[in-house]
Amino acid sequence: MDVRVQGDAFDVGAELSAFGQGDANVGAVVSFTGIVRDVAGGLDRMEIEHYPGMTEKAIATMVDKASARWGLADSLVIHRYGVMRPGDQIMMVATAARHRVAAFEAAEFLMDYLKSRAPFWKKEFGADGSSWVDAKDEDEDALSRWD
């Protein structure tokens, strides 16, 4: 398991080329990369605040659950905080497993939990000022499918 909460950008290609290597049981690697998008137009930047200490622990707990449930061979979560602009990579998840279904499901599970249970808060800054991004009901609903 590798969990990193950092301000700096990361290199998805370099991370993935190293991920899951050297384990003969790994038959599938799935990854997801989250990118700052500009839905309405006019987004200058996004600032992500987090809760140092709790953030790392909360993510590690999610990864432990995913590893146990899907028998993951390896897992990686990188999530940034600080200032990001449209097109910048915010976060990535990678899962390695024997078969693809486990790797896909574990990655989806981690994404659903990161959305609603990892202590990050996004604020958008544009021409019209700034506003905190509201949590969506559908993100909360997405968690229930894993009960």
């Binding site: 989250g34 809760y51 709790m54 999530h79 915010i90 976060m91 994404m111 990161l114 959305k115 609603s116 249970r117 990892a118 202590p119 990050f120 808060w121 996004k122 905190w132 991004v133 509201d134 949590a135 909360e140």
Partner: peptide, 10 residues
């Protein structure tokens, strides 16, 4: 004790 709005990670 920490108070905050619903989280918006990912």
């Amino acid at each position: 004790v920490a108070f905050f709005p619903p989280m918006t990670g990912g």
